[in-house]
Amino acid sequence: MQHFIKNIQVNKDTIHFFHNYKINIDKDRVFKSLDCFTDSPVYDIMDEIYYELIAGIDDLLDVTASFYIEDTKSTSEIWEIQDCSQTIYTTATIGSRISEKIAELFAKYDQIEGVILDAIATEIVMEIGNQLHFLIYNYITENGFGAVMLSPGEYGASSSYQNTIKNKMGSQNNVDVTESFLLEPIKSSSRIYGLKPGIPAARELHNCKSCNDNLCKWRRTAYVSTS
């Protein structure tokens, strides 16, 4: 059966690539993650460095955003989705060049530049992951499903699920997995969606209001307890 996601023809059991992403960098989020605000004594210096870095950011990016859809196998090792109808695996990476540049800056003791570029890289991969999630969300809702969403290694989901994604996508997604289940390149992300009717589908990739990680520097809103 074929489906369409925003004019992308989708077949099951094959890898697909999301090309319509945009490189959006939220400067306020980057600076907040660094605990640097407009009244900080180093703000003007960091502001100047930030704009110097983003001026050449495109040369440091090698983006691959991918997804793979299949009917859920009864033998799936992912126990959280064994009762689901379909499974979607996604990965997003911005490549290794930017991490190499960050390492180069630290090696030259350009600490401020390295820290800012690392925060920019994190913001970019998070944003591309958000855009990929919205694409998947459209597929989920347009086909009458809700979804269980897993991030390997987070909130109790096994880190070993990274290998499950790797086994589905092979090397085409330009993301590898280490023996300790870390993603390479470092600035990469992955998700697993278990689709079934009768449950909600989260429009937002992450809900800061329900996340109790109060130390997270990427938090957008305050935690609101539902208990």
Rank of each mutant, 00 (worst) to 15 (best):
M1K: 12
F4S: 11
I5K: 06
I5G: 08
I8N: 15
I8F: 13
V10A: 05
N11Y: 12
K12G: 05
K12L: 14
D13T: 03
D13A: 04
F17I: 08
N20E: 15
Y21P: 05
K22I: 11
I23P: 00
N24G: 02
D26N: 14
D26G: 02
K27E: 13
V30Q: 05
F31K: 04
S33F: 01
L34F: 09
C36L: 13
C36F: 04
F37D: 02
T38Q: 12
D39W: 08
P41Y: 06
D44K: 14
D44Q: 11
D44Y: 11
D44C: 05
I45C: 06
E48L: 14
E48K: 15
A55H: 13
G56M: 07
G56H: 14
D58W: 04
D58K: 15
L60F: 13
L61D: 09
D62W: 07
D62E: 15
A65H: 06
A65P: 06
D71H: 13
K73V: 07
E77A: 15
I78T: 06
W79F: 15
E80Y: 15
I81L: 10
I81G: 05
D83R: 09
S85K: 09
S85A: 12
I88V: 14
T90G: 10
T90M: 12
T90N: 03
T91E: 03
T93Y: 09
T93H: 04
I98L: 04
K101T: 08
L105Y: 07
L105R: 01
L105G: 00
A107M: 06
K108H: 06
Q111C: 06
Q111L: 10
I112R: 04
V115L: 13
I116F: 02
L117P: 00
M126D: 02
M126G: 00
E127W: 00
I128R: 01
G129A: 11
N130K: 10
Q131W: 01
H133L: 00
F134C: 01
L135S: 04
Y137G: 01
N138W: 00
Y139N: 04
I140S: 07
T141N: 03
E142R: 08
G144V: 09
F145D: 02
G146H: 04
V148Q: 10
V148H: 11
V148W: 08
E154L: 11
E154P: 00
Y155S: 09
Y155N: 12
A157D: 03
S158W: 08
S160W: 08
Q162D: 09
K168F: 11
M169W: 07
N173M: 12
D176C: 10
D176E: 14
S189N: 14
S189R: 09
S189F: 15
L195H: 04
G198L: 11
A201N: 05
A202F: 03
C208V: 02
K209G: 02
C211F: 01
N212R: 02
N212V: 00
D213P: 01
L215Y: 11
L215E: 11
K217F: 07
K217Q: 12
R220S: 04
A222D: 06
T226Y: 10
